[in-house]
Design a protein around this nucleic acid. Structure first.
Lengths: 160, 160
DNA sequence: AGTGAAAAGGCTTTAAC
DNA sequence: GTTAAAGCCTTTTCACT
């Protein structure tokens, strides 16, 4: 799907506030609300927009610790990589999971209530997954930035 | 701020669709729209809800690669940790940055158009920050999960 | 605290350019 | 592709429980 500068501008506004009204979006990007609406629906249908979500303070709902865990597996067969990923995805505390190149196989980020919960999660969930060889945990001391894509650096792009 | 089961249920609905109407939220959690509205405004004011955002397919806007970079610094003084973090936050391609315990100081996740962009970013931006000692990059081959807090595991919590 | 109704405003569609 | 206007639905307020 091809995106022009208006599409990118609309995405930029929605990244800042997904509940912005069509009028405000239109004013911000220099269009009226109708074309904005059409463009948003088009991007939703094309999968450019995957959804809208709320940003919650983890500490406010009781998740006091974030831990990043590096995992190595016993084998690098496609079957094991896939099955391990599926098992990871079923653990609700796992917020992000990346299959990566390099020394490790998976990087995962988990949210836990406290260190006891973390210990239990590691022992009772993560190490119960077949194929895990080793893990290394790093506690997050400070979170500096939250993801928003730098859309001003994005060019229009054609995608399958 | 104390959150009851209705607050958590509302957050759960909004995590799934931040543009859900108050009527739909009310139906989903078993309340009418007015108390849902009051609770949302209360959580926004208290900072439990930090904002609403759109989830964009990075590839659709031209960011074909995600790289996770581990960074060590020359010193662990508070000043250096802080200054480095501030410099990181100013790089638009840096989507997430965590100050962590363990062998490394920072874990950062960056979005780049391609490997050439990544190389340029590393050389012209990251290694220009004073105090950087070493970095190690891992390319993301597959992204398995995207963060949504497991609110069913969250208890009501009192926060400063 | 919650409900339900009414007013205000925004969304979505249609029509026209 | 765009703007403008009409109808409908949602948000927001208010009176009451």
């Amino acid at each position: 799907m091809n995106l022009d500068k208006f599409d990118l501008a609309i995405l930029g506004v929605l990244q800042g506030d997904a509940r912005a009204s069509l009028q405000d979006i239109g004013t911000a990007v220099g269009l009226s609300s109708t074309p904005c609406w059409n463009r948003i629906k088009r991007m939703e249908a094309a999968g450019v927009i995957k959804g809208y979500t709320v940003q919650i303070d983890p500490a406010a709902v009781g998740f006091m610790d974030t831990v990043i865990v590096h995992v190595t597996l016993e084998s690098h067969s496609e079957e094991m990589l896939y099955k391990f990923g599926q098992a990871l995805a079923q653990i609700p505390e796992v917020l992000e999971a990346f299959l990566v190149s390099g020394d490790y196989d998976y990087f995962i980020r988990i949210a836990v209530r406290d260190t006891r919960d973390y210990e239990r999660l590691l022992r009772e969930r993560l190490y119960m997954i077949p194929g895990i060889r080793h893990s290394k945990s790093s506690f997050v001391l400070r979170r500096l930035k939250e993801s928003a894509l730098p859309l001003h650096l994005a060019g229009a792009q054609t995608r399958g």
